[in-house]
Computed example of a mutant assay.
Amino acid sequence: MASAVAQGGTRLLVLLKGVAQVIFQANPWTGLVFLVALFAGGWQFGAFGLLGTVVATLTAHLLGVSWDERVSLGLEGFSGTLTGVGLVLYLEPRPMTVLLVIFGAIAGSVLSSALTVLLRPYGLAASTAPFCVITTVMVVGGSAFSRVWAVHASTPAPSAAAPGTGLSWTYLWQGTLSGVGQVFLQDQWYVGLIFLAGLVLAGWRLGVIALVSSLAGLLTGWLLGAQAADLGAGLYGYNSVLTGIALFGTFVVATPASAVYALIGVVAAAGFSAGIGNLFAVAGGHTLTWPFVLVTWVFLAAVPMFSRIRRV
């Protein structure tokens, strides 16, 4: 009996780590706070995000992915988390979406392993690329299937209802917090605040990096003339948050030189967001975390050329 309880507790910790690994953390308490934040954004985000985490983690375990090196650290769960949140956001909570999340999480697990193998010689991680690929394919292709597209969410940019480039104080502070929440596709500032609390639980420096990166992404968008409502919703901050944390302390040793390097990456991710968004909008897709993935891969691949910057 005690053994069964212990095993159940271990599985729960692995799932919570899977949620936390969306922002590179293997801390189960951080994962628990992230999960609370998802439910605060809406029951469907918490439920479908958890479903994706469970299926992706279970798939990797059943296929024999290393428990000690990957599964136990939550590294096989986070793309499933985002896939569940993304699909329920764009396709609404209904039985067909449940099936798509299950299939998407399974396919994402296989793709994650494939990318891990392909990228290993270059010292790169798959990151959220499996989520980006699976969600993009399903959402773009969804319109061809009546049972998938019969009920789908209308997700226009906030600026469609409130155009203008004047950045108010409200947009500034709400956008900075929402930039953290948008990592999980959540645009409410208070949900972003809960996610921020989860990061601080893993380390106060992470919270500072996330806030600075989100603000830098927002200001980059503002300087370039982005719509203020989109800035206020965090649409120019979340890829910068992931990029900043990845390039300063997670994959690159934290030094003054790497801080500057990370800041360049943060700005690049924000600027790249509009280009990726416009590209995928033509086919009915979304920006997701593509800017973070592509910018981080490029910046990490370039590190061996720079003597003042070192990989972790």
Rank of each mutant, 00 (worst) to 15 (best):
S66P: 05
L177S: 01
A269R: 07
A257C: 01
G86I: 06
G80W: 03
P93S: 15
G249F: 06
G234S: 08
H61G: 06
V212Q: 00
G277P: 01
V14C: 09
G277H: 10
V54E: 01
L75F: 07
G142Y: 11
N278Y: 04
T243D: 05
G207N: 00
V140N: 10
S213Y: 13
F251A: 13
T170C: 00
A162S: 12
G104K: 04
A302Q: 09
V282T: 15
I102S: 02
G31T: 04
V14E: 10
V22H: 03
N278G: 04
I23Y: 06
W67L: 05
A228K: 10
G164F: 12
L99C: 12
T57V: 09
W290C: 01
L300H: 07
V303A: 08
G175V: 11
H61K: 14
P256H: 04
G164M: 06
A274G: 03
R120S: 15
L87N: 04
T250L: 00
A226K: 09
R70G: 00
A60G: 05
A202D: 15
L63G: 08
F195C: 09
L288H: 02
Y190E: 11
F184H: 08
I106M: 14
V183H: 08
T81M: 05
D187A: 14
C132N: 15
V55W: 02
L242A: 14
L199C: 11
Q7W: 03
V212M: 06
G234W: 10
T135H: 04
M305H: 13
V183D: 06
L288K: 01
Q174T: 14
G285K: 10
M138C: 03
V266R: 10
M1I: 00
T136H: 05
G232P: 05
V22A: 09
A6E: 14
T30W: 10
V312R: 10
L73Y: 04
L177P: 03
A161D: 08
M305W: 15
T59S: 14
S168Y: 06
A301L: 15
L294I: 15
K17H: 10
G277N: 12
G41M: 03
A281M: 01
F251P: 15
P121M: 05
